[in-house]
Computed example of a mutant assay.
Amino acid sequence: MCEIFCFNSNTPKEVNECLQCFYNHSEDHPDGWGLANMQSNEFVINKEPIKANCSQHLKDILSHPVVGKNVFAHIRLATVGEIISPNCHPFIEADDNNRSWMLIHNGTIFDYPELDEYITKESGDTDSERILLYIIDKVNEFEKDKGSLSTIKERFNLLKEIVFDLSRNNKLNLMIHDGDLTYIHSNMKNSLYYLKNDDGFMVATTPLSDDENWKPAELNKLFGLIDGNIIFESEEHENEFILKEEHEKAIEEFSKSINRDETND
Rank of each mutant, 00 (worst) to 15 (best):
W101C: 00
I92K: 15
S128H: 02
I84K: 15
I92C: 13
F142V: 01
E143Q: 14
I119W: 04
I75V: 13
N87T: 02
E117A: 10
G107R: 00
E129W: 04
D111E: 13
I135P: 07
E143T: 06
L115M: 04
D127W: 03
V80I: 10
K69S: 14
I104F: 02
K144R: 11
Y112V: 00
N106K: 02
Y134N: 01
S123W: 12
D111S: 13
E122G: 04
K138R: 15
A78P: 13
I92N: 12
I75A: 08
K121L: 09
H105K: 01
V71L: 05
E122V: 04
I104K: 05
I136W: 07
I75P: 14
D96N: 13
R99S: 06
H89G: 04
H74D: 09
K121M: 13
T79G: 07
I75S: 07
D111H: 10
C88Q: 06
E114V: 02
A94S: 15
A94W: 10
Y118H: 12
F72I: 10
S123R: 13
N70Y: 14
D95G: 10
K69F: 05
A78Y: 03
V80E: 10
E82Y: 11
T108V: 15
T120H: 09
H74C: 10
E114D: 11
Y112N: 01
I136L: 06
I119Q: 08
K69M: 14
I131F: 10
G124F: 00
F110E: 03
F72H: 06
D96Y: 08
L103S: 03
H105E: 03
E129V: 00
I109T: 03
K138P: 04
F72T: 02
I84F: 10
L132P: 08
G124N: 03
K121T: 05
T126E: 08
Y118D: 00
D127H: 05
A94P: 07
P90W: 05
N140T: 05
D116C: 08
G107M: 00
D137E: 15
F142A: 03
D95T: 00
T79I: 01
E93I: 05
I84C: 09
D111W: 05
F110Q: 04
I131S: 02
F72V: 07
E122R: 11
Y118V: 06
N98M: 11
F72R: 00
D116P: 07
E93V: 02
I83R: 11
S123H: 08
D111N: 14
F91V: 00
V71I: 15
G81A: 03
F110Y: 12
A73T: 09
N97V: 11
D95H: 05
Y134G: 00
T120I: 12
K69Y: 08
L77S: 10
I75W: 06
V71W: 09
E114P: 09
I131L: 14
N87V: 02
R130D: 02
E117S: 12
L133H: 14
L77D: 12
N98P: 03
